[in-house]
């Protein structure tokens, strides 16, 4: 079985972002970019499944501008066998990404598609569900544990839901999206980074995949959230209780 993993290039999670003065978006020039943390977890899970003898190949896929190749190299250095870059410019919303994935799935015929549950830039939490819907595959979203049964072609997934943990059993092929607690992603070692340079990254354009990138969404402006007014530092528990009672009136 082949596993396909989606990886997105986003602003590093530790960077304090700045909104552009003209309100058209967030400053991305000269800002550290990294692989989306949930995508790292997705790739790690795919690698573990392969190392457990349940999969033969792990293919990492990224969509977007030319720099996505750097993210794919990181994925190859972690252990992915090969990569696919869909070269697309301009805004790429989850619906288009899902359609591109569907086209790639039809070409590559993976038995499992793993994505992060959300990208930490747009915070959409949509792509996995949408590609599952388009393919008619079952979906195991927000996974914190994945167990595969190769004989029966089943995936058992523990999902992080509002009330606790929900367990689902799905027929393969399926789509899984990863939550934070699924695993601890590995670091790429120097020899593996060197090896990754000779691995293949295949390039497609949306036209080659017969997908028209269109959008039914329009971003009008991006602004900073309202600032909270400055707080005070109290010196004792008594003062704190007094303030909460007589100033804030919350207790």
């Amino acid at each position: 079985m082949k596993i396909m993993v989606a990886v997105k290039r986003v602003i590093d999670y530790a960077v304090k972002i700045r909104v552009k003065p003209d309100k058209t978006g967030v400053e991305t020039q000269n800002v550290k970019m990294s692989m989306n943390p949930f995508c790292e977890i997705a790739l790690e899970e795919a690698l573990r499944i392969k190392e457990g003898g349940m999969a033969s190949e792990v293919v990492a896929v990224s969509m977007g501008p030319a720099q996505c190749v750097d993210t794919l190299r990181t994925g190859l250095a972690m252990g992915a066998d090969r990569a696919i870059h869909v070269d697309a410019t301009g805004p790429l919303y989850p619906l288009s990404v899902a359609k591109l994935f569907k086209a790639l799935v039809e070409l590559e015929k993976p038995g499992l598609l793993i994505l992060g549950k959300q990208a930490i830039d747009d915070d959409c939490n949509q792509t996995g569900q949408m590609v599952a819907g388009l393919l008619g595959w079952p979906q195991g979203t927000f996974a914190s544990k994945v167990v595969l049964d190769k004989e029966k072609q089943l995936a058992t997934v523990d999902r992080e839901v509002d009330g606790g943990l929900e367990t689902l059993c799905m027929d393969l092929p399926a789509v899984i999206t990863t939550d934070l607690r699924l695993n601890q992603p590995r670091y790429a070692t120097l020899p593996n980074i060197m090896k990754a340079k000779s691995k293949v990254i295949k390039k497609y354009t949306p036209q080659e995949l017969n997908i028209e990138i269109k959008s039914d969404l329009e971003v009008l402006q991006v602004t900073e959230p309202p600032k909270r007014k400055a707080g005070v530092i109290v010196s004792s528990v008594d003062e704190l209780i007094d303030k909460l009672k007589n100033e804030a009136h919350v207790i």
């Binding site: 619906l95 569900q129 949408m130 979203t141 999902r159 039914d216």
Partner: peptide, 22 residues
């Protein structure tokens, strides 16, 4: 919540429209 986030994007894909989250 986990209910809406799980279901609505899938339904949106079936209807071929972009959903908007949160």
């Amino acid at each position: 919540g986990s209910f809406g986030k799980n279901i609505l994007p899938r339904a949106a894909a079936l209807l071929d429209v972009s959903p908007i989250t949160d």
